[in-house]
């Protein structure tokens, strides 16, 4: 699986939510694209990841 341009070995199929939590992301402060399609927060749990997926994650910090 490719995550933010880097290859990551995925041992087994997991949900996007579990993957993001394991990687330490704050789920409320990110935008995620999987295989070129935006995944909204309410779909993180149902979206499954497999080794051919390409994920891009953008994090936001506060201030404006």
């Amino acid at each position: 699986m490719i995550v933010n341009g880097k290859e990551i070995i995925l041992q087994k199929e997991i949900s996007l939510k579990v993957f993001l939590e394991k990687k330490g992301y704050d789920l409320a402060r990110i935008a995620v694209e999987k295989n070129g399609i935006i995944v909204e927060k309410n779909s993180f749990e149902t979206e499954k990841l497999c080794c051919s997926d390409k994920i891009e994650i953008v994090s936001f910090v506060g201030g404006g």
Partner: peptide, 30 residues
């Protein structure tokens, strides 16, 4: 926007709902 949760929500919604939109966001300026 100021709040990081609202930033993430807005960006995701816009990109998801509008195929032609380009979003110019901000993160990290304090």
């Amino acid at each position: 926007l100021d709040n990081p949760e609202t930033k993430a929500m807005l960006v995701s919604k816009l990109l998801s709902n509008f195929a032609d939109v380009k979003v110019i966001a901000a993160s990290g300026l304090a």
